[in-house]
């Protein structure tokens, strides 16, 4: 029995070790190294652990210089901040668009639900890159959107949307919408209708019932959806580089420049380590809080 338990725990932990902790250790090691003109472009490198003193000299050559460097130039914290802002606002917008969608899906007649579900997932069948590029032809100055708006007469001259932050928001909301819709839908679908009836019987208006019953009960779905959107959006590189302008500042682009233009893997790794810490801390704190609440409820 104990062995079985151990095994069950072992599976997720070895997954975590192999796919997260080991890669993280490698990135951290590079972040503590120095730039060099060589393959790979940093020193020191660890060529297998021969003996303990080798390993000790290797460790002594590592330092936090690159992390200190990141604090010296405003570019980095501004990029983190601007990424966080873009990720936060797009998460909010994804929720505003995604929740009604999920709600409508969950309220639809049960024979329609599989079809609606299918429609929500369908865009995934096309390559992500192609879908982002397609937005270029929609948003450009000669694009479909401007043509339609000009034709309808809403605007007199074409709007400049492509190569701006607006295009980045549109791209992120569009791309990550299914990640919001699916968990929210899953939460709403399980909702017991009798609870709503009870709320109304007890004098709630329909809106009050929605706000006091439906929304709190779909909270786990909303939170899961927000995490699924916020985390990848924060480090997003493809959408800002295809749809954004040269003044769109996101940490993914800064990371690219460090890695490709400066060839400075150690600084690039330091940027990545900080990004990871910024993501992990709030998640861990949040989970702690959840756990406490759950225990309090018991």
């Amino acid at each position: 029995m104990d062995l079985r338990k151990l095994f069950l725990i072992l599976v997720p932990y070895s997954w975590l070790l192999a796919l997260f902790l080991i890669p993280f250790a490698i990135v951290l090691k590079i972040a503590l190294s120095d730039y060099a003109i060589a393959i790979p472009p940093y020193v020191p490198t660890l060529d297998g652990i021969g003996n303990w003193s080798d390993f000790k000299t290797f460790l002594s050559e590592l330092d936090f210089e690159n992390f200190i460097f990141l604090t010296e130039d405003e570019l980095y914290w501004r990029a983190y901040l601007s990424s966080a802002k873009i990720a936060f606002l797009s998460t909010l917008m994804t929720l505003l668009v995604g929740f009604p969608l999920a709600y409508a899906m969950a309220r639809a007649a049960s024979e329609w639900r599989p079809t609606l579900m299918m429609l929500a997932i369908l865009p995934f069948w096309t390559s992500f890159l192609i879908r982002v590029y397609a937005w270029k032809s929609i948003l450009s100055q000669e694009g479909y959107l401007n043509q339609v708006l000009l034709w309808v007469g809403v605007i007199d001259s074409p709007l400049m949307i492509l190569n701006t932050n607006t295009a980045v928001y549109i791209g992120i909301v569009y791309t990550y919408l299914p990640f919001m819709v699916l968990p929210v839908y899953a939460a709403l679908e399980k909702l017991d209708d009798t609870l709503l009836e009870a709320a109304e019987d007890l004098g709630c208006s329909r809106f009050q019932a929605f706000w006091l019953v439906t929304v709190p009960l779909s909270k786990p779905g909303i939170i899961a959806g927000c995490f699924l959107v916020f985390i990848p959006a924060l480090g997003e590189f493809v959408i800002p580089s295809v749809l954004g302008g040269s003044d769109t500042l996101m940490i993914g682009k800064v990371l690219w420049e460090e890695f490709f233009s400066n060839r400075d893997w150690p600084v690039a790794s330091a940027v990545a380590v900080i990004l990871l810490l910024l993501l992990i801390l709030p998640i861990v704190l949040f989970q702690r809080n959840e756990q406490k609440q759950r225990e309090a409820e018991k």
């Binding site: 393959i39 790979p40 472009p41 890695f259 490709f260 233009s261």
Partner: peptide, 8 residues
């Protein structure tokens, strides 16, 4: 830059 990173 892209080429160089692959090579390095």
């Amino acid at each position: 830059e892209l080429l160089e990173t692959k090579l390095l």
